[in-house]
Simulated scan of single mutants.
Amino acid sequence: MTVGCGSSKQSKSSSAQTRPSVAYVTNGVAAFWVIAKSGVNQAGEDFDADVSVLMPSDISDQKRMIEDLITKGTDGFAVSPIDPDNQNELLNKAAKFAHVITHDGDAPNSDRECYIGMDNYLAGRMCGELVAQALPEGGKIALFIGRVEQDNARRRRQGLIDELLGRSEDSSRFDPPDAEIKEGKWHIVGTYTDQFDRVKGKANAEDAMSRHSDLAGMVGLFEYNPPLMLEAISQAGKLGKIQVIGFDEADETLQGIVDGHVYGTIVQNPYEYGYQSVRVLAGLSRGQTLAELEIPESGFLNIPATQIRRDNVDEFWTKKKQILGEK
């Protein structure tokens, strides 16, 4: 990586910049990130910062974006690492030239300065609670997710499994994604990954139904998974026969809750992810400390998840539309 064009983070912090440049790098392209962008733009106005939002298509695209930010001399950026274990070196190099924080998904072994997001393991357990409520007798369920390499994906999947199986809390636990899990009344037939390929995501749902005619539930752990699952289930004529539980707040998922085709979903607060990321990066660029910015000593600014069911979906959806300026 070429970094010679950037100036050091130390020189940036000591230069008393009046309008820092801040970037927000996502882990893909999704409606979820459009909400985050609203928070980024509002914080840019509130904290007098030049902001940009970058949505990569894959890990190589994300790497290129980070390198470009350093070359341009960006003061700081927030990133949701696609494959944190293999991106530590890149993030560590970047941290020498810019303020680097993570959001949504963490890279805890890197030199990032803090993480802004939810506890994905506990959110996974919250999702497990929804699955147990939707299927009190248990049964066969299939899990769907973009990729398990991401820290947030691994943690929320594990939290879900641990909650269903009645295990103690241990976010370091890891059940291999290629194995079936049979324990008690639960049979997790597999974890289907799609690498953010929507065609593959729908095909995965179709495959799960084809292989398991008695499938009782589907759980989508990324924002776009539940809508693809619903589409596949509808075309198979199994709406209402297979319980659907999701993550995030895609309109199709929320409509599914209203219509009774989705039991519930776990929502994050992407607006706050974007807003708080810019607030912290603008402050760091102006020489403030993490303590002054009210970041806990753990380096984790927790923005809790929420369970959405039929009894609170209308209120939540109204707030979402207000944030996006929709009617």
Rank of each mutant, 00 (worst) to 15 (best):
N27I: 01
N27P: 01
N27G: 03
N27L: 02
G28N: 00
G28P: 01
G28W: 01
V29Y: 01
V29L: 04
V29I: 12
A30P: 02
A30I: 01
A31T: 11
A31P: 02
F32Q: 03
W33V: 02
V34H: 10
I35E: 14
I35D: 11
I35H: 06
A36K: 06
K37Y: 02
K37P: 00
S38L: 05
S38R: 15
S38A: 15
S38H: 15
S38N: 15
G39M: 09
G39D: 12
G39W: 13
V40R: 08
V40S: 08
V40N: 08
V40A: 08
N41P: 00
Q42F: 04
Q42H: 13
A43V: 04
G44N: 14
G44Q: 14
E45P: 00
E45T: 11
E45K: 15
E45F: 03
E45H: 13
F47R: 12
D48A: 11
D48M: 04
D48H: 14
D48K: 14
D48C: 10
A49D: 12
A49E: 11
D50P: 00
V51P: 06
V51N: 10
V51E: 07
V51S: 10
S52M: 10
S52V: 09
S52K: 13
S52L: 05
V53R: 07
M55Q: 15
M55K: 15
M55G: 06
M55S: 15
P56R: 04
S57F: 04
S57R: 11
D58V: 04
D58H: 11
D58E: 10
I59P: 00
I59A: 13
I59W: 03
I59M: 06
Q62L: 08
Q62A: 12
K63R: 14
R64H: 06
M65H: 04
I66C: 08
I66H: 08
I66G: 08
I66Y: 10
E67W: 01
E67Y: 02
E67R: 04
E67N: 13
E67G: 02
E67D: 13
E67L: 03
D68V: 06
L69W: 06
L69H: 07
L69R: 08
L69I: 05
I70K: 07
I70S: 06
T71D: 14
K72D: 09
K72P: 00
K72A: 13
K72L: 06
G73M: 09
G73I: 07
G73E: 12
T74V: 14
T74C: 12
D75K: 09
F77L: 09
A78H: 04
V79E: 02
S80D: 07
P81H: 14
P81N: 13
I82P: 02
D85C: 01
D85Y: 06
N86Y: 05
Q87P: 04
N88H: 05
